[in-house]
């Protein structure tokens, strides 16, 4: 009896949570104006892919998807490297004032990102980075949270491994590259997925930095479309499906790493 109750609540919760996502797909397959009938439909009478064709052929969504992908991939690669280097050093390489500096960084996490945004814009303008991909990529590369995650993980690497490598005469960079990076793989995958999804979904910063519409990312292009095609519900839904589905596919593919990493980070943090 209790088991039955749990199952019912579970199914209801999952259904309510997934309903908006599933419905987005369903409405995106409806012909023009079917979504605006007086009783809302759960399924299209006859499914059509015309909105997807429209998005790719006429509205160049493929270009924005490519922009988004290249940006997210570069940010992820660079940012994982930068944060792994720093996180490892904060965990295992002693230097003067290290722990005080790390505490200072943690305290700085209370400062909302929005405080830095306005001067950051002026700074990028000075550097000539407005309306460039570099302007989107560089400012967010170093992440205090990312450094924190790697540091937590690197602290569990046995000291004997490091000592052995040093006795063999390996340089610090070599130790990092061929010993630390492979050992930290689980947390680096978590960090990479977190970073990729974060920049794939990021809206505000690309919106501020990119002015030329040919450089837009998917979310910015979608918001722009929303202004012009507010009444084309089915078309907007298809755009939403295309924007969200890569993130969902990536998440489902690596969910164990991702959720496992989040749980480790939150328990120790």
């Amino acid at each position: 009896m209790r088991r039955l109750l749990i199952y019912a609540v579970l199914l209801l919760t999952v259904a309510a949570t997934l309903f908006p996502l599933v419905w987005t797909v369903s409405v995106s397959l409806m012909p023009v104006a079917e979504a605006l009938s007086d009783s809302p439909k759960l399924w299209p009478d006859s499914a059509t892919l015309e909105h997807y064709r429209d998005l790719f052929d006429r509205l160049e969504l493929g270009r924005y998807a490519l922009n988004s992908f290249l940006l997210a991939a570069s940010i992820t690669a660079l940012s994982v490297l930068v944060n792994a280097l720093a996180g490892y050093a904060f965990a295992r390489l002693p230097f003067a004032g290290r722990d005080a500096l790390f505490r200072l960084l943690l305290a700085a996490m209370v400062i909302p990102g929005q405080v830095a945004m306005l001067p950051l814009f002026l700074l990028l303008k000075q550097f000539g980075l407005i309306n460039t991909y570099a302007g989107v990529i560089i400012p967010g590369l170093a992440s205090i949270f990312g450094i924190f995650l790697v540091r937590q993980y690197a602290q569990s690497i046995p000291q004997s491994l490091l000592d052995a490598a040093r006795l063999d005469g390996a340089g610090e960079l070599r130790i990092f590259w061929s010993l630390i990076l492979p050992l930290c793989r689980p947390i680096l995958v978590t960090l990479a997925v977190l970073t990729f999804l974060g920049s794939w979904n990021d809206f505000l910063w690309p919106l501020i930095v990119l002015t030329d519409s040919r450089r837009y990312t998917l979310p910015v292009a979608l918001a722009n479309l929303m202004g012009e095609h507010a009444m084309d519900t089915e078309l907007m839904m298809a755009g939403a499906v295309l924007t969200v589905s890569p993130a969902i596919v990536l998440f489902l593919a690596v969910q164990r790493y991702y959720i496992g990493g989040l749980m480790r980070g939150s328990v120790r943090g």
């Binding site: 996502l21 409405v27 979904n201 979310p219 839904m237 939403a240 499906v241 993130a247 969910q255």
Partner: peptide, 25 residues
Amino acid sequence: GLFRSLLFLPVVTTLVAVAVVWRYV
């Protein structure tokens, strides 16, 4: 594990995109 991941899905979605369906809801 499956249910945990399914309930986590909204977190990984793009806000601008899910705003489309929520405005419709």
